[in-house]
Amino acid sequence: MNQRLLVSVRLLMIVFVLALLIAAPAAAQTLAPAPGKAPATVKKWTAKTPDGQPDLQGFWTNSTYTPFQRPNGVTKEYYSAEEAAKLETQAAEREAEQTEPGTIADVHYDFTQFGLDRSESTHVSSVRTSMIIDPSDGRLPPVTPEGQKRQAERAAERRRMGATTDQVQNMPIGTRCIIMAGSGPPMMPAGYNNNYQIVQGQGYVMILTEMIHDVRIIPLDGRPQLPKNVRQWIGSSRGHWEGDTLVIETSNFNGKNPFQNGSEDMRIVERFTRLDADTIDYRFTVDDERTWSKPFTAVLPLVRGVGPIFEHACHEGNYGVRNTLAGARVEDAKKAGEAAAKKTTK
């Protein structure tokens, strides 16, 4: 077993080096600003699966430093190439600092050391100042009064439940290995492991997210959504082709992990358009009148990633939750002991 493990580690290292080699050109590529509708400006990609679907298959990543909302003080839609490169370098430096030995952040495993951070893996280098393209200011639309009330109630409920270390149910959903941002919808990049595999079978598109081995299976046969009372973490998705664009409509969220603090009645329309061998244009529109005064649209490309995707058995190896809670209980006992000692001395 030890020898086998060694071999495995070596293999992983080879995979890792290969990944870096492949990542380098992709990381260097800067997606040119495409004013207006991006797909129209690029040569049409026509590859089809054997049963005639436009071919989206393969390994993809949406890793990027582009923020979801346009940073305060930025008024333009695109940076110059120089500005974008400088911002990316600065962000990568901050990421590396985050895991500087001896800092609290370093108690987490050092993801820069293992090449998991964005700068060391394949990612999209975009000159966009935000993923949001509509509204044109690159920011979320104003929150409705109902949305504001709900957000205040959620915050109050979180306070009532106590500290995140009081009980596992107070911890973030990702820490608990239930769902992470990458699964979506919408499929949003996180700090690391933003890897996907798309496989198309007869009548279905399947999207495997590396994190928590989450799978979306999207039927293309025009069937209705699940009944309204059946709600899921990833909602209920139905797809169809509009020309060469895969359109997925999702509703029926369970409201326990709402995207951007929206409501469980959020509807999301995602569009996947293959631009070339290495790029899918991915954009999505969120419609949730209970939370925002109008729908908003964001765009972030998927670029060709590196496979295969290995099993991410998150829950099975979740020592983080156990150790955090156990540590907090030790702290509690220590404090209780100190308090008791103080009382005795008095």
Binding site: D166, Q167, V168, V321, R322, A328
Partner: peptide, 8 residues
Amino acid sequence: IYGNLRKP
């Protein structure tokens, strides 16, 4: 799994 570690 974690109920034994909840804050009393």
